[in-house]
């Protein structure tokens, strides 16, 4: 009981901007170092594991593609949580974290789309197919860009944060609908037998570098968002 309340107090201490800046400044080098290390290990694993007997060397794209796609969704979830923080608790850190996460999410989504497209050309013979998953990621990309455009168009940061938080949440409740509708649309027009992304069950041989890369990407996300959080909330007060 008392331990739990202590944990809660510790966490709310973290939400204090000055403490957060202090902590972020101390931890950032460590996180950056850890990220670099993970990337080194991950990339080493990526290039030393064997290629797939069917897909050949192109399978290595997966090690970038899949983590980027995961991160693109995680970023939006982080933004939705921050949006809740902005609207419900009116917390200044939530404002900046939502704003900082948007461009990063857009970058990851873009990376997922580009690598997916590069992977699709040898596999499917086309740069782009209107596969359900690709299409919904593309819609997510458009939503990121819309949010960034909105944020840039408004001059009052406090107002921009509130208004974009509302839009983020509306987008968040829409994501399942969009996902479901795109899948419905796709199965209606073309059977999704050939274009299945997941393919055969993943061999542990591929899983190991994939997981390391996913971890590395996630670690990359932390310094990327917390640095602007620390500087912006420091400047903005």
């Amino acid at each position: 009981m008392s331990e739990q309340s202590l944990a809660i107090r510790k966490f709310s201490d973290l939400a204090n901007p000055t403490r957060f800046i202090g902590l972020a400044e101390r931890l950032l080098p460590w996180f950056s170092g850890l990220t670099a290390l993970l990337f080194a290990v991950g990339l080493y694993l990526c290039f030393t594991t064997e290629g797939d007997y069917q897909q050949g060397e192109t399978v290595r794209i997966m090690y970038v593609h899949v983590p980027a796609a995961w991160l693109s969704m995680m970023c939006y979830t982080v933004m939705a949580l921050s949006a809740l923080g902005t609207l419900v608790w009116r917390h200044p850190l939530a404002d900046v974290s939502a704003r900082a996460a948007a461009p990063i999410g857009a970058c990851f989504t873009f990376l997922a789309l580009v690598t997916g497209s590069l992977w699709g050309k040898p596999m499917w013979g086309a740069w782009w197919v209107w596969d359900a998953r690709l299409t919904s990621v593309f819609v997510l990309f458009l939503m990121y860009l819309g949010l960034i455009a909105l944020n840039r168009a408004m001059d009052d940061p406090g107002k921009a944060a509130k208004v974009s938080a509302i839009l983020i949440l509306v987008g968040f409740v829409n994501i399942p609908i969009i996902k479901f509708s795109v899948e419905w649309w796709n199965t209606l027009h073309q059977p999704a037998s050939v274009l299945r992304l997941d393919g055969p069950a993943i061999d542990p041989e591929f899983l190991r570098p994939l997981l390391v890369m996913a971890l590395a990407f996630t670690m990359l996300f932390l310094p990327c968002t917390s640095r602007p959080c620390a500087t912006k909330s420091g400047a903005g007060g």
Partner: peptide, 25 residues
């Protein structure tokens, strides 16, 4: 969302169209 923006017209379309995809489908 774009009510306070002087040239919000285009932005409204950009924000709304992705959300309207399910309706279209």
């Amino acid at each position: 969302v774009a009510v306070a923006l002087p040239r919000g017209g285009l932005l409204v379309s950009i924000l709304v169209l992705p959300l309207a995809i399910p309706v279209l489908i």
